[in-house]
């Protein structure tokens, strides 16, 4: 039993390799792009975009349009990647710690970028020394730890769900894995929401004084 789709390698040339994580990620990207291209004028996508914009605005990020491509894509990618678990043979890229770490790193980089864009370079740096300079190391540790937490939380949830389904398939009748898959869909959607909302909150904290 594989713990991560990273271990399923289809092609390798030195350090460069094409594993299941990357392959399924491309698949999800292709699916999303096709849907976006084909369904641009359909109401359902407009509803998703409008709802995303409202959520971002409710967190306090204004104008929401500025942050929507980044935060909306995080939600759509994770949610699509998790919902595709209903496809037989599919392994969610989010079940790979590499993917979740990559996403967490993107958030980790995006937070200071958006912060500097809003507050200026020194303004953003000053926020680390607030409320006192003594808090500087703790703020830095907080940034690192929350990035780590983001990555591990998503990975843990998705990996455990996949593992549980795999184990149940091995030991129990077909009915229980189906239930767990349905539960996994709900968990996956909730995790996508949690990841994108946390990213929004971190960015909001960095962009507002």
């Amino acid at each position: 039993m594989r713990l991560s789709p990273d271990e399923a390698i289809f092609w390798q040339y030195g350090a460069i390799k094409l594993n299941a994580t990357i392959a399924f990620t491309w698949g999800v990207m292709l699916l999303l792009t096709i849907c976006a291209r084909v369904m641009t004028h359909k109401g359902i996508l407009e509803m998703i975009v409008t709802a995303t914009e409202m959520q971002i605005a409710e967190v306090g990020l204004k104008p929401a349009k500025k942050y929507m491509p980044f935060l909306g894509t995080i939600f759509l990618f994770i949610a699509t990647a998790n919902l595709c678990t209903v496809i037989p043979g599919y392994e969610p890229p989010t079940g790979s710690l590499s993917t979740t770490a990559a996403l967490a790193l993107c958030v980790f980089v995006a937070v200071p970028l958006f912060g500097i864009h809003s507050l200026g370079f020194w303004g953003y740096l000053k926020s680390y020394a607030e409320p006192t300079v003594i808090m500087l190391p703790f703020n830095i540790i907080g940034d690192l730890s929350r990035t780590l937490a983001l990555a591990i939380r998503l990975f843990g949830n998705m990996m455990s769900g996949t593992m549980i389904i795999a184990i149940l398939l091995a030991i129990s009748p077909f009915f229980f894995p189906v239930l767990m898959t349905i539960l996994g869909l709900l968990t996956g959607t909730v995790q996508a929401y949690i990841f994108s909302i946390l990213a929004s909150v971190f960015i909001a904290a960095a962009t507002q004084k």
Binding site: D6, M29, A36, L103
Partner: peptide, 16 residues
């Protein structure tokens, strides 16, 4: 894979 996924994500952001 981390680097590839980060790149994939950025490409996806652009595509979206």
């Amino acid at each position: 894979t981390v680097a590839a996924q980060a790149l994939n994500f950025l490409i996806l952001v652009w595509l979206m």
